[in-house]
Design a binder for these strands. Structure first.
Lengths: 243, 243
DNA sequence: GAAATAGTGTCTATTAGACACTATCTA
DNA sequence: TAGATAGTGTCTAATAGACACTATTTC
């Protein structure tokens, strides 16, 4: 029972970003090489402390997104994953980090000349299987971000956030295949995607490939929810709940 | 750009609990009457500050659950909803609250003699429509908790957490109807629930009603995921993502 | 015309939703 | 036996998944 003069313990608040993108048909996450202790020289998610006591948390996430990845919050999807604050997670003291999931269209390389000592895309699979180790509890955060992305892909037009402004049906299908780790039938996929009202809208233009028939271009439609959901095949299921 | 001697601003960390239960076929949330400023005398979610700098956040949630609602973490479902930390949300300073969703089986009354000046179940609908006002940003937190519960009900055996250890099919159906705010066909519901492997398992016993045929009792099965999901009718859809 | 990619149509098996009756108990 | 609740079966429409061909481009 707290005494009359008791006051709550202060903590330090940080943000961390799981920035997912698609490169060469494979899902990648942005990692930076830490310049300072702890874990100097190790790979970690981009992020950092709140700048000042009145900075909004999601604003801090946008700031770090820009500072460490050079990404502007234009067509970007950004959503809170949750708070990570286990007592021993940061040797500097009690640090609680609010993690955000960000989805970026396929980008050639992260911007140079930024805060981080080095920033590069890493295959999500390498982080998840442990081939690539990351600082703090960031592996868990990546796992949660991946799971969130997989879930939301079914019911929300999240997949278009992985694509450039104008994209083809095949581009979109590759997003689903990469995130879910499955193969989809192109005919059934196109049928369902076209049937979903407000998911994608056709552009007047087409995209020419080096070979083959040019593809119709689309852009993201106005709807914010996919109904009925695009069910993923019953293989790629996981669970993240705790009882 | 931070200077060399810059140090991050400290914040105060709190937990808040959205404790949902079912009373008389209606979804209720536990509210307490605040004993201290700010918002003294107003209704609010149970919660409070971290006890000390080394207390785990989810442990603090469990502690508050017990202190303010007398609920032990037995068959209880508890899951993090997210962090709420808008700069102006608490007049005492920069307070970041980590919200948790808890699901409790139908209970007669909250335990008396606890920390809160008064604790009582309030209909979720009254909070959501504004008939009952709550302190801080707690209305938003309740909304997010409700939405999370609605979503998870489809794919996870969450509904059993609303029920006592042994329950009937009708009990279970009423959970879905109350949380989704829809009516379901009892025949189709029973068929689907029975077909889902590991969702519910039959007990040898039955429950006698004051009138009518006794009902078969079940308990929660071993499975942690419902496949295929129990789709809710296409009416009760909402969106909580931000782009 | 050969190679590559885009785009579409059909058939079938499964599933979801509407629907009504029988069973078992109490008063 | 009347009232109340539990429990089940069938028909039909919609959906999902398997599957193959035509169309348009470059070289």
């Amino acid at each position: 029972m707290p005494t009359h003069s008791w006051s709550p313990p202060p903590v330090l608040l940080a943000v961390d970003l799981v920035i997912l993108t698609l490169r060469g048909g494979e899902l990648h996450v942005l990692l930076v090489e830490r310049g300072i202790e702890p874990f100097a020289g190790h790979q970690a998610l981009p992020g950092g402390f709140l700048n000042n006591a009145s900075e909004d948390i999601v604003a801090a996430a946008h700031r770090e997104l820009y500072e460490e990845a050079g990404l502007d919050a234009g067509r970007l999807y950004l959503e809170q994953l949750g708070a990570y604050g286990a007592p021993g997670r940061d040797p500097r003291g009690r640090v609680v980090s609010v993690a955000y999931l960000a989805i970026a269209p396929g980008l050639p390389e992260p911007e140079p000349g930024t805060d981080a000592a080095d920033a590069d895309w890493a295959p999500v699979a390498a982080v998840m299987c442990g081939d690539l180790s990351v600082a703090f509890d960031h592996r868990q955060i990546v796992a949660d971000g991946l799971e969130r992305a997989r879930d939301k892909l079914e019911r929300f037009p999240l997949a278009t956030a992985f694509c450039p402004e104008r994209f083809t049906i095949t581009d979109l299908q590759q997003v689903y295949e990469a995130v879910w780790g499955t193969r989809l039938d192109a005919r059934n996929f196109a049928r369902k995607v076209h049937a979903l009202p407000g998911f994608i809208v056709a552009e007047p233009s087409t995209r020419r490939m080096t070979r083959g028939r040019p593809a119709q271009l689309f852009r993201a439609g106005p709807n914010t929810v996919l109904s009925p959901p695009l069910a993923r095949p019953a293989g790629s299921m996981t669970h993240e709940g705790d009882v």
